[in-house]
Design a protein around this nucleic acid. Structure first.
Length: 261
DNA sequence: ATGGTAGCCTCGCTA
């Protein structure tokens, strides 16, 4: 089973690119982030025509997440547990997807950016990641294959960005942000890219500004975290960076892994 | 020292 994650930065602006990549890459599951549209306006027909079912948790103009799956999904949960009425951001959707040998629970995650630091935006980022950590613990108790995948807006290590000095005062590289992601990994989740690739300097995002793609000034912030039962079946993983050189690209590229499930 | 990009659907906000 091939499962993928991609922050598309508006699904309406990226529909042609998304359809082209799905035809080429043929994933069984795609978790999307920053669809930037409502459930009603999500272009489900275009994906259904390719054989995908859609589970959408949208929001007007900002945020918004979705899961596409060739097999029908079960147990769709369009929210991160533990929130209250004050959190109206669409940043999480989870579903159970059947494979040939068993099921996988997948989550499409868009963690808050949190900039600038020293504001309520950074506080919100850390509290959201705390909520996510609690839920990641709950999911581990199921002892089932689970993949928590998406845009975590966290640069885990110095080698996950082209120049750590530039990111010193950025919310994506604060010690508190990095510790929050590490807490989840320390529960027993495996990073699917790092498990398969020893080389450093693999990026998933290049800013639109300042020729970042041309200069390879990227960062690695899109991650796939696998529960032990999923990691047991990890075969391969990859980052489809050539997508960044396409026409009207997202600033993020697809990240994927194959599970023998 | 500045402005540089993209997407929302407005003339500012988010990333």
């Amino acid at each position: 089973m091939k499962i993928a994650t991609w922050n598309v930065n508006s699904i309406k602006a990226r529909l042609d690119a998304a359809v082209a990549w799905l035809k080429e890459a043929q994933p069984d599951v795609l978790c999307m982030q920053e669809i930037k549209t409502t459930d009603e306006s999500f272009p489900a027909e275009a994906f259904e025509a390719l054989g995908y079912n859609c589970a959408v948790h949208g929001q007007k103009s900002y945020n918004g997440v979705a899961i596409l799956s060739k097999r029908p999904m079960e147990d769709v949960t369009p929210r991160l547990p533990g929130g209250d009425d004050s959190d109206d951001h669409a940043r999480y959707i989870e579903a159970v997807v059947p494979g040939k040998k068993g099921v996988v629970r997948v989550a499409s995650i868009y963690a808050p950016n949190g900039n600038p630091i020293g504001t309520e935006k950074f506080t919100y980022k850390l509290s959201w990641l705390d909520r996510f950590d609690v839920h990641a613990q709950e999911l581990l108790r199921e002892e089932e294959p689970t993949a928590l995948m998406g845009d975590y807006n966290v640069i885990p290590m110095p080698y996950d960005c082209w120049d750590p000095k530039v990111w010193t005062n950025d919310a994506l590289y604060q010690p508190e942000s990095r510790a929050a992601l590490r807490r989840v990994e320390n529960l027993g989740y495996t990073d699917a890219i790092k498990a398969c690739h020893a080389e450093k300097g693999l990026y998933t995002f290049w800013d639109y500004q300042d020729g970042a793609w041309r200069k390879n000034h990227g960062i690695h912030i899109d991650h796939i975290l696998l529960s032990p039962q999923a990691a047991d079946h990890l075969k391969t993983s990859g980052i489809d960076k050539e997508v960044r050189a396409g026409e009207r690209p997202s600033d993020h590229v697809p990240v994927w892994c194959e599970l023998d499930i």
